[in-house]
Amino acid sequence: MSDRDRERPSPGSPAHAGPTFEELEAEPIIRREGSLYADAWRQLRRRPMFIISGILIVILALMAIWPGLFTRADPRACSLADSLLRPSGEHWFGTDVQGCDYYARTIWGARVSITIGVLVTACSTLIAMLLGSIAGYYGGWVDAVIARLTDIWFAIPTILGGIVILRSIFSTRGLLQVSLVLIVLGWPTMLRLVRSAVMATKEMDYVDAARALGVRPFRIIRRHILPNAIAPVIVYATITVGVIISAEAALSFLGVGLQLPAISWGLMISVAQNRILTAPHLLLFPGALLSVTVFSFILMGDALRDALDPRLR
């Protein structure tokens, strides 16, 4: 930016002996529009939906990375004497059956949920981008094989498939096992999206132009197709983070996800269901935080879609 300002000759400078036709044509630099992303960013900054979800996601991310910022209490330091206390000044969210501080546990629960959400989304997006761009760019039998494989995979319901795999294959179920299962089951939708975006972008003239200038296929995909096809993928990935977080909660709730003593919102909700009438706060707090998290990511996805997808403007 600063380069541009410095180098643009000022209208009064001696270099300007009356503007030529072409100089007049070049004038619009002053009103720079920038790339798709610069444009989207300018739009986003003003949108309440983006600002709210952005702030919430930053808070949740801080919670996941440094839970100590939010609570001094140790979520695993419990005294049975304090079992099932109602929310109070000392224990903001009350305590659970074991007498652990429920506020601390809820805060620490963010770490598992967000780690799984981000990890699973990142990995399945990576798989989808790799296979999807190969299928979309090369077409033909390569595409046929990948697309059919995806269709078969796609037919497996996530939760049901998750229950079967988690129960039959793994003896212990930690963060890694649950993530792995969700990655394995999660990539097909994303792949379809990448594939169709790549196929649409492949038809653009600049891809032909790049080929006419002797650019290699791999570089064409990386430089010319993916940067132009990525907008819908970013949008969908953001929404997926929310969906995966709730899928983890669902699996944990059903008893096939994380196991105690892990701290996760799904697990907390699962334990709380037996005492819903006597200690509703056990369900309320992790449930509310889970909803807010999923909501933030979905809201962010929507805001990104509005900004990145020119057809919806």
Binding site: A209, A210, R211, A212, G214, V215, R223, P227
Partner: peptide, 25 residues
Amino acid sequence: RRRVRGNRMAMIFQDALTALNPVFP
């Protein structure tokens, strides 16, 4: 063949707006 393209023969297209990649300067 790819080495011939660009190096030895090049091509320009009708609509340069669609023939240039929109996301790079």
